[in-house]
Amino acid sequence: MTQAATPQATAARLERLFEKPAAQQRRCIIRAVDVKKVYRMGNTETQALRGASLDIFQGEYLSIMGPSGSGKSTLFNMIGGLSKPSSGKVYIDQVDIAQLDHNELAWLRCRKIGYIFQSYNLIQVMTCLENVTLPMSFAGLEGDEAREKGIAILKLVGLGHRVLHKPSELSGGQQQRCAIARALANSPEIVLADEPTANLDQKTGAEMIELLAKLKIELGVTIVSATHDLKMLKRSDRILWIADGRIVKTARPEEIDFNSGEFH
């Protein structure tokens, strides 16, 4: 109040006022607090994570970067409810995963999280539709209802004409589309994508990124991906660097010089 109302200052103040409450209103869907993970192999201990904290908000598109051995996969596994931290807390949708037994973790994976893998991991003996309805049957949805929902999701990802094809009869991009449809089967709030474009050519990879961005907007899902794909990084809301078991940097894509050395 006492300061002079320069246009720059007003703009900065307005930005603070409007952005901060908006950020607070957004639900924090994944929260990690000082997470440490130690792997024991015989007598040697390996510290994969040395205290990582982060918040991931609903509807966010977050990319995680990091060299191999940085703890990226470990953090990724914990966000996905695939393993528990040695110390610290991981909350997925306000639930501390350390308190869940393995059945409850399975329940969490089934309904809250969709997985997309680098090598698709479709079940080869099943058709596209069966691949999509499989997680539905784990959630107790079967029969015509599951089939209709499966077909609707396959149409959404642009695979409506390949419903009864087996994965081996599809191209890489189509297989990844099917995998994305499978990840969405139980309407999860979080989609975890592990290098989803690494096995695809440039053009198909770009299509996949567009599809994920479209789903993020249309369905409001939170997307967390581990990736080195520049196009994907540019599309994300936030980028996270991990090195040596710690989160070393968080940035928005527009703040980053993509031509710098760290991306090559």
């Binding site: 994976r109 089934c110 997985y115 893998f117 991991n121 997680p135 784990f138």
Partner: peptide
Amino acid sequence: TMKCLGAL
């Protein structure tokens, strides 16, 4: 994969 999809 099945376990990731929620198989017990």
